[in-house]
Structure formats: structure tokens, C-alpha cells
Design a protein around this nucleic acid. Structure first.
Length: 492
RNA sequence: CGGGAGGUAGUUCAGCCCGGUAGAAUACCUGGUUUGGGACCAGGGGGUCGCAGGUUCGAAUCCUGUCCUCCCGACCA
């Protein structure tokens, strides 16, 4: 009973924290704003990473690694980028400690060891990477450069939340260089599609593809594309971004190339990233008051088998059947765990694996063996059925697909129900306060109006959807003419 | 960074106001009985009371500082 989870209704934030901590995904650490990702959480991240990494490679990208530290002079080269991140940078100023002469056994920063130039711990790697690309690019024949990096970054956030916003987080960042603007834009859009494909088809999380307004754009980008997801409490979550950087970084780092006619021009750039934040979104979108609900395609374990037995003789008989089943499941590439530990009884294990979100539970006892069946329980719907052992492996294979699909459909139905078109300010405010979710409304296109709406309602423009329908209307705040609706929401 | 709450056994917490031998539940270990939705009996081990100073004969308790966490707000490509 010590592991009881706070209900969503009682305290949504506490529910979220309970799931992460008690589900065994992560722990708090001794470092401000930084978390420990535990083996179960990291296994989830590894599965996500492996799928994404293959997608990147299938679209022609290669991995590389750049330094954690960025000399301050490089960091400040692209002015807007530097300004945007300046407030949340960790900075290395010294390179040595020494024994504190005043306190035995304590260390102090050695004032003699001050760095000539401070090093910024990367909050993002455009600067160090573009400084490097300068040496890699002379001719159009050197382009495109399609590089991805799996890395950690540090952003000194004021208020942190497990997975959703931590001071240090894991991510991938793609940084590409192109000869033409058109090619760079195609790349930006292509990677947005990769993200949407991954998040929808692997994480079972429906997203809206769109572009950010100038206010919400990445510092240093000409255009920011994004995918936006909706959480169960009606708040939006930016799940991934893909930036068209124009020639901003090429100009800042003086990266030019000769085209076929030997004319010099600046290189065109993109960058794109998703992070461990996706895990936070996954948790918030799918789980319930009994614990996590993980989509089969990325769950660390897709199936857990719990034996129910009295005495060693029964256990032996069950073991035999289970080992056959495990072989069958492994041949189908299904990740399975057999929990035959004797320190917990079946009921305890049921609750434990529900909390950990394992998609399918198989229970086998003497009663089942007599009928050559096993009890199958779905985590997402809690439905239980008895299935003949001879058909079980294939049944599980199919059920995993069904669960994956069903989770996506459920999340999509919720998302679609929570996109509300409104035409007046009153409707707008009321929808945000009572119904929550995305609100589709006309906006006059000015940053000032966007800012005022944010001040008054805490809602921001999440995106202007791609392929947005054009229609005439009036801005909900100012009444000025507008040609399209945009999506507002309160967001994480 | 502002406001509020907190840090004592692996975990959840009591004890603090009013200073005097560190407690409960649960988890863990041993033995036994159990096992189809978080088992039971008996015995046992485990805590520099976040950290550092100070007051005191004596500090988990009082004072100062500091670190970390949670909630609300500001901030958040």
C-alpha cells in the first residue's frame, strides 16, 4: 500500500510525479533540477532512440559528436541565438580545485586557475557545430552535410519537472547544411514528418504539425516547425521542433561555398531535435490512476508472465509451459519478462506491473493448466480473457498491435474532441477555462496581440497548422481582419 | 527568482511548540504456513535526524547559514 498513486482528479501534478517515481522511470538527484533516469526509464528511452536513429539513417543522416563546451566567443557569434539562451546558461570559469587552507578536508576553487575565456555548457550546439562546419565546406560538392548528434544539453531552468523540463536532458539534434534555400526547407519539413511519424506510430500520440509564430520561434531561426500534442489535463506539449535556420549561422560563422558557376554564397541550414521530454508527454497522455500505460512498440517489456502455484511441483509444470511460450514469443521478437520471483504474491505482481505499464499480463496457474489456457489481461482496458496455450503466442502478437492502435485512437479521439473553434473573446476565455485543449480562433497576425492574449489568458499560439484552411474572419481580441485560424492552448 | 510547504530507517510518516537513552507502519533478513487482485505468524538487522556552524552540562528539538525537493507564480528555443 506504500505505493499508492495520487489520482488525476485529486492532484494532476502529483499524479504525474507518482507515476514517474513509483513506476521506476526516474528519481530525483542531489543536483538541482537534474534527475536520475533509472534502468526502466532508460530502457524506454533506448527503444525510442533506436527507432529514431534508424529513421534518421534511413533518411540519409549520419551520427557525429561535438564538444560539451562552447567557448563564449563562439556562443555569442549568432546574436539572436545567444540572446535567446543567455539567461539559462551554465558557465565554466575555472579548471582546478585545491585544498581549502581554512577548512580541513574541504576543497575550494583555485583562483589561480581561472580560464582565459569562459566555456558555456551547451544549451544547444549550433555554435560549436557551425564553427566546425566552416572547415568542412568549400564547394557545393561538400554539401549537403546531414549530421545528427545524440547528446546531453544543459538549460538552467527556473522551475524543473521530471522529464518535462530538467536542467540537464538527453536529446538528439540534427544539424544540416545545404546549397539552396529550397533544399534546406525540404529537409526541415522532412524531419518534421519523421518526428510526426515516430510520435504517432510508435508512441501512439497524435500530433498537429504546424509552424510557430515569430514570438515562439527558435532563437536564430527563420522558421520553426513543430509538432504539438495534447495531454489529459487539456494542456498542450511541444513534442518536437524542426528549424529552418536560413543563412543566419552561415553568416555568423562565415561559412561560404562555391557553386557550380564558381560563385560564393552562404550555406543554408536546418536543425531539429526531440528530447527525453517526449517521455513526459507519453506518461501524461496515456496513463491512468493505476499507473503508467506504455505503448507496446516502445515498452521495455511488452508482456509479463506471472505464475500462480502451490508448491514446487506445480511451479515445475508451469515453468515448462512458460518456457515454451517464451521461446515462441521471442521468435516473434516480443519482449517478455517471466516474473517467477517468490518474494511477492500474484496480486502484488499484478498491481506492480500495472503501475509499470506493461501492455499485456499473462497469468498461468494450475487451474489454467488443466484447461491448457492462460489468463490474458490488457493494461490499457483492463480486459481479461482466457486463451488456449497453443494459440497464445500469435494471440499476443495480434493483441499488441490492437493495443498500440487502440491507444492511438483513444488519444486521438480525446485530442479531436478538444479542438474547439470559437469566434468571440468570451467563448475563447470560457473554452480555455472549462473545456481546455486547443482553441482554434482568428488572430490578427501581430506579435502584440499574441502577447496580450498570453498575458490575459496564459494561452499561447501553439502553431499555425500546416495546410491551414484559409478563411476570412476577425481577430478574437482586436476584431481586426484575419485570413486563417490558429491554434491556441495553455502549454507545458 | 518571489510566495508557501517540506527533508528523521529502503519508503511513508510521528516526535520538534515545551532540549534529557531516536519511534511506528511498511519494506528487508531468518524460519514456518501461504500463493487466482497488494498474505499471515514468530524472531532479527537497519537511522552521523539533509549539510555546516552556533547556544547549552546536554540539540532531531532552539538560533544562523547553506543545499535539495514539492506546490503556486514569474521564466521556459
Amino acid at each position: 500500500m506504500s505505493k499508492e498513486i495520487t489520482s488525476r482528479q485529486q492532484d494532476y501534478s502529483q499524479w504525474y510525479n507518482d507515476l514517474i517515481l513509483k513506476g521506476g522511470l526516474a528519481d530525483y538527484s542531489a543536483v538541482r533540477g537534474c534527475m536520475v533516469i533509472k534502468p526502466y526509464g532508460f530502457a524506454l528511452w533506448e527503444n525510442m532512440r533506436d527507432v529514431l536513429d534508424k529513421m534518421f539513417k534511413d533518411t540519409g543522416h549520419v551520427n557525429a559528436y561535438f564538444p560539451l563546451f562552447v567557448p563564449k566567443s563562439l556562443f555569442e557569434a549568432e546574436e539572436k541565438n545567444a540572446e535567446g539562451f543567455a539567461k539559462e546558461c551554465a558557465i565554466v570559469t575555472h579548471y582546478r580545485l585545491k585544498a581549502d587552507p581554512n577548512t580541513k578536508g574541504k576543497l575550494m576553487v583555485d583562483p589561480e586557475a581561472k580560464l582565459e575565456e569562459e566555456l558555456v555548457v551547451r544549451p544547444t550546439s549550433e555554435a560549436i557545430i557551425w564553427n566546425t562546419y566552416k572547415g568542412w565546406i568549400q564547394s557545393y560538392r561538400d554539401l549537403p552535410i546531414l549530421v545528427n548528434q545524440w547528446a546531453n544539453v544543459v538549460r538552467w531552468e527556473m522551475r524543473t519537472r521530471l522529464f518535462l523540463r530538467t536542467a540537464e536532458f538527453l536529446w538528439q539534434e540534427g544539424h544540416t547544411a545545404h546549397a539552396t534555400k529550397e533544399e534546406a526547407i525540404i529537409e526541415t519539413e522532412k524531419m518534421l514528418d519523421v518526428y510526426a511519424d515516430f510520435v504517432e506510430n510508435w508512441m501512439a500520440l497524435p500530433v498537429i504539425k504546424g509552424i510557430k509564430t515569430a514570438n515562439e520561434r527558435f532563437a536564430g531561426a527563420d522558421e520553426t516547425y513543430c509538432i504539438e500534442a495534447l495531454m489529459q489535463d487539456g494542456k498542450a506539449l511541444q513534442a518536437g521542433t524542426s528549424h529552418f535556420l536560413g543563412q543566419n549561422f552561415a553568416k555568423a560563422f562565415d561559412v561560404k561555398f562555391s557553386d557550380k558557376s564558381n560563385k560564393l554564397d552562404y550555406v543554408w541550414a536546418t536543425s531539429w531535435g526531440v528530447s527525453t521530454r517526449l517521455i513526459g508527454g507519453l506518461v501524461m497522455a496515456h496513463s491512468d490512476d493505476d499507473g503508467l500505460i506504455l505503448p507496446p512498440k516502445i515498452a521495455p517489456f511488452q508482456v509479463v508472465i506471472v505464475p500462480i502455484f502451490k508448491g514446487d511441483d506445480e511451479k515445475k509444470l508451469i515453468d515448462e509451459k512458460v518456457h515454451t511460450l517464451i521461446q515462441q514469443l521471442k521468435q516473434l521478437n516480443i519482449r517478455v519478462k517471466y516474473d517467477d520471483s517468490d518474494n511477492a504474491r500474484p496480486g502484488w505482481k499484478f498491481a506492480e506491473y500495472e503501475m509499470k505499464g506493461v501492455p499485456i499480463r499473462v497469468a498461468i496457474g494450475a487451474r489454467d493448466l488443466a484447461n491448457n489456457v492462460a489468463e490474458i489481461a490488457r493494461r490499457d482496458t483492463k480486459e481479461k480473457t482466457s486463451v488456449n496455450l497453443n494459440e497464445l503466442a500469435v494471440y499476443i502478437q495480434n493483441l499488441l498491435n490492437t493495443i498500440q492502435e487502440s491507444m492511438f485512437n483513444k488519444a486521438k479521439a480525446f485530442r479531436d474532441e478538444h479542438i474547439t473553434e470559437v469566434n468571440t473573446w468570451d467563448e475563447f476565455v470560457q473554452t480555455l477555462d472549462t473545456k481546455t485543449g486547443f482553441v482554434s480562433a482568428h488572430w490578427d497576425g501581430t506579435p502584440e496581440t499574441e502577447e496580450k492574449i498570453k498575458e490575459q489568458t496564459k494561452a499561447t499560439i501553439r502553431c499555425i497548422p500546416l495546410n491551414n484552411k484559409q478563411e476570412n474572419g476577425n481577430c478574437i481580441l482586436t476584431g481586426n481582419a484575419s485570413t486563417q485560424r490558429v491554434l491556441f492552448a495553455r502549454a507545458y
